[in-house]
Write a protein that binds this DNA or RNA. Structure first.
Lengths: 235, 235
DNA sequence: CGTGTTGTGTGCGCTAGCGCCCAGACCAGC
DNA sequence: GCTGGTCTGGGCGCTAGCGCACACAACACG
């Protein structure tokens, strides 16, 4: 079991719980190692587990028309996968794919629902988290409609850096194109532009954030807006 | 008080409640007449009331960058405004604007929260409704990204027709452009195309749906998908 | 060391939608 | 009947992103 697992605060939702609630919840969790591209939930499929990422992170993807798709959410150690269970629905509304491999806590849905019923603190916390997610979903819709690819890419990189807890991570342009709902070539152009401006360095899927401040300036306001909304609601 | 108000089933959420719960809830409601373009909730503003439209309908709009905006939800007699209260948050995540004037039930938030705590049936129902809304939010994001304006317009018209309970309603192209996040001229083109194909007839904001089947064929699959998801979850 | 696979960069013609501006049609009110 | 506001339509040049096809570099593995 990796060392990261032993820190209870490795997931911020868990960390935000009162000690008693947290300990009971974590007693029902098991540590798992998520691997890149693993599908944790199909759209419309029944969820068997919820996940609290610690070092890993998960993309929420809205498939459309069979072929295309669009990432509409990103879950790292600030959140959880399976939040719709607090609405009493154990069907996943979206496709959930591991975007960054690594450790996470996992809990089966029955145990989770049981704990949820017992702890009103847990309920309160997760309700607020869901509220934030909803706001971000709407924000993402508008962002995707209005903002230029380069800005959206910059935002995506920042969000990923936050969740990867590192200024280096691996993601191919092909994959990025899939997430952003554009052609691979479009990503090539946008990424080249960022690289020319010395904001990132890119080589065969290995991305390094060189100038975080510059990247924030190049990204759309949605990045900061999202962060602010999380901070406001989750404290 | 308009006659439509006397029918308890005029709002489908209310109608779906067991008689006892419904009667208690409606006792806390007052009938109001919503007027076009009225703002019922500012983004980030505190909500004072929740609304159950009967003949009226309400747009949920995600403003972005101050100027532009995008409609991400539409609430008619199948839903309610203020659903985020079931998450214990009385701040509106979106801008809510009356899109079609008419009667609705209104309830102040305190009473609503109180009733919510009393009726687990109400909770269950609204949780499912929120789940559907979330799914549609994600769907809308992808739809806006990938589908052509003409198809999106057709979808919008169908959704509005459903909520207006009439094949005629009033909406200017200017307003449509605002909702769809495009130029007015773009709407002119798309609407002309639909009119040329004898699917709608359009004159100075007065729209009439001429060929509903044709319009469904011209719209993207999102319309049917949304309807199906509501039907599945809400019975 | 060659060979297939994976990832990145380019070029080319195309389309949807943009921003801007103006024309005409219709309606309401004086 | 005139006038001014509202609504629709169209023209014009432009851009972001599309689809397709191809070249090339780096790596992985026999």
């Amino acid at each position: 079991m990796p060392d990261t697992h032993s820190a209870p605060a490795a997931n911020r939702l868990l960390a935000a719980l009162p000690r008693k609630d947290r300990e009971r919840l974590m007693a029902g969790c098991e540590p798992v190692e998520l691997v890149f591209a693993e599908v944790l939930a199909e759209q419309g499929g029944r969820m068997r587990h919820v996940y609290f990422p610690t070092e890993s992170f998960i993309s929420l993807v809205a498939p459309i028309d069979g072929r295309a798709s669009l990432e509409v959410g990103l879950i790292g150690n600030e959140g959880m996968l399976g939040i719709s269970l607090i609405l009493g629905v154990e069907v996943s509304p979206l496709l959930a794919v591991v975007q960054g491999g690594g450790p996470a806590w996992r809990m089966d849905t029955e145990t989770f629902c049981h704990e949820l019923a017992r702890s009103s603190e847990l309920q309160r916390l997760l309700q607020r988290y869901l509220y934030v997610e909803i706001g971000q979903l709407a924000q993402t819709a508008a962002c995707t409609r209005f903002h230029l690819l380069e800005a959206r890419l910059a935002r995506w990189l920042l969000m990923t850096q936050d969740r990867a807890h590192s200024d280096e991570f691996h993601v191919t342009q092909e994959f990025l194109a899939y997430m952003l709902g554009v052609r691979r070539v479009g990503v090539t152009k946008a990424a080249s532009s960022l690289q020319n401006n010395k904001l990132i360095s890119y080589c065969r899927g290995n991305i390094r954030i060189v100038d975080r401040h510059g990247l924030e300036a190049a990204s759309c306001g949605c990045y900061k807006a999202n962060k602010a909304s999380y901070a406001e609601m989750m404290g």
